[in-house]
Nucleic acid binder design. Structure first.
Lengths: 136, 136
DNA sequence: TTTCGAATTGACGTTAACGTCAACGTTAAG
DNA sequence: CTTAACGTTGACGTTAACGTCAATTCGAAA
């Protein structure tokens, strides 16, 4: 029972919730992607850490490496509004978006190809049946 | 100059065309993804090999592993029209398509987030300028 | 107080997808 | 004939993203 009303998670809780191992969370921390607080020696994860992890995992699913994800998370840590930094950040952002859009096209094409193949298989079977071929 | 009118490619030609190394093509062959003919000792790639390679690389771009891509290419080698095999093949196909569609959603979400962040950065700068803050 | 479960920190192992390098064969040009 | 360019087969190296295991430590329950 939490003494305060602050929602936190143990490493295993968070790991289970996101279907990853505790080792994975420690690894992400080693890589600087997460930095949970400590309660004594143990890690305690907040809701913000949760959101961050969610972002990380989605990044992975779309094919980014951990270092790339780290870079993207760093973008959020601007703080200083130096004009050049802002410009750089926005360019990186747009580059990412472009890459993702190219990836979407690839996926669409692959889906089409797979569905086309699926139909091909169907018609192949029907043809066989049409010629009264019961089994190959 | 080719003696016949059959279009073929050397390993380096193909590699250059697709912006990969020769080693990569040999690696794909080791993994059974490609099986070019030989002219003496040298590999000769046909137009079919080209198409296969194109498929492989697109598969990579959408996040499949080489073994997964190999499995998918094997689907095309049905030949035997055994009913069960056909069913299995179609299920694998559909599973792939589902996975790809989930991936598309992830990508769309990520794009949204990135664009949202981009605008956030913009408004942050304008605010600063509105308050006559030239530089952070 | 002992014991148990959950967490921690090293540190080394593993897999995928190539990179890199050595040693060698072939062919066309000078 | 010899050099260069291109190709070949091992075979070992590398990086990323964790897995795995050993040796603790800590807090709560029996």
């Amino acid at each position: 029972m939490p003494r305060d009303a602050v929602i936190t998670y143990s490493i295993k809780e968070l790991a289970n919730d996101f279907m990853v191992t505790a080792r994975t969370l420690r690894h992400y921390e080693e890589q600087g992607l997460l930095s949970p607080g400590r309660q004594g020696q143990n890690r305690i994860y907040t809701v913000k850490d949760r959101a961050r992890l969610s972002w990380i995992l989605r990044g992975k699913r779309v094919g980014f490496s951990l270092t790339e994800i780290g870079d993207m998370l760093d973008l959020y840590n601007l703080g200083d509004g130096r004009e050049t930094q802002v410009a750089v950040t926005k360019k990186l952002c747009r580059d990412r978006v472009d890459a993702l859009q190219r990836q979407m096209k690839d996926i669409r094409d692959t889906i089409e190809e797979l569905e086309g193949f699926c139909e091909e298989v169907d018609s192949l079977v029907k043809k066989k049946n049409g010629e009264w071929i019961i089994e190959g």
